[in-house]
């Protein structure tokens, strides 16, 4: 009886230890692992008032105002490799009795324009502010242009203005970044 047990238990242990193996696996699949996070991120916002378009000191119209900010993350190496698509969403709320043209000019560090977006904004009134939404979808080859940029120049143009113009033009914006990291 004792002998009958000894040999099998030793045998089982040895066979199991010898037979221990890793099979039915394919570790080369690791090369295919891809993270595809889709990130929602605020972009820029502003609040311009009608008086920004008229210089009361000189009584001159100011037809275009512009401002610039860096967006250094756009030209980051990881983003250049990983960004597959970017969807910009702009939401203008206008209570000025004028329509506007808004320009977003993406510039490289050398101030070359790499990508540009233009949209028009409908006029509204103080009683009834009008919302204009605009979506710019960037994908394919255009992504390479966009990710060469490290800053954006925002220009807002009014066809005409005077001292009596009232109301404000508000912008909120965000971007959806569709990325792929391997």
């Amino acid at each position: 009886m004792k002998k009958n047990l000894t040999i099998p238990s030793l045998g089982i242990l040895l066979i199991l230890l010898l037979a221990a193996c890793v099979k039915d696996t394919d570790f080369e699949q690791a090369d295919n692992i891809t993270l595809r996070p889709t990130v929602e991120l605020d972009l820029i916002y502003f609040d311009l008032s009608a008086s920004d378009f008229f210089d009361s000191n000189t009584s001159n119209q100011i037809l275009t105002v512009s401002d610039t900010t860096e967006l250094r993350f756009l030209s980051d190496g990881e983003i250049q490799d990983g960004l597959k698509r970017a969807e910009f969403y702009f939401k203008f709320t206008n209570s000025i009795q004028r329509s506007f043209t808004a320009d977003f000019q993406f510039l490289s560090e050398q101030n070359d324009t790499t990508y540009a977006v233009q949209t028009s904004v409908s006029q509204g009134t103080i009683a009834n502010p009008v919302i204009t939404e605009f979506i710019e979808n960037v994908e394919g080859n255009a992504i390479a242009d966009l990710t060469m940029a490290s800053k954006v120049v925002v220009s807002v143009t009014i066809p005409s203005s005077d001292a009596n113009l009232t109301g404000s033009l508000n912008l909120k914006s965000k971007t959806t970044y569709y990325t792929e990291f391997q």
Partner: peptide
């Protein structure tokens, strides 16, 4: 709270 970048058009 992060809101993005506010432009003030100086």
């Amino acid at each position: 709270t992060l809101d993005g970048i506010e432009l003030i058009f100086p």
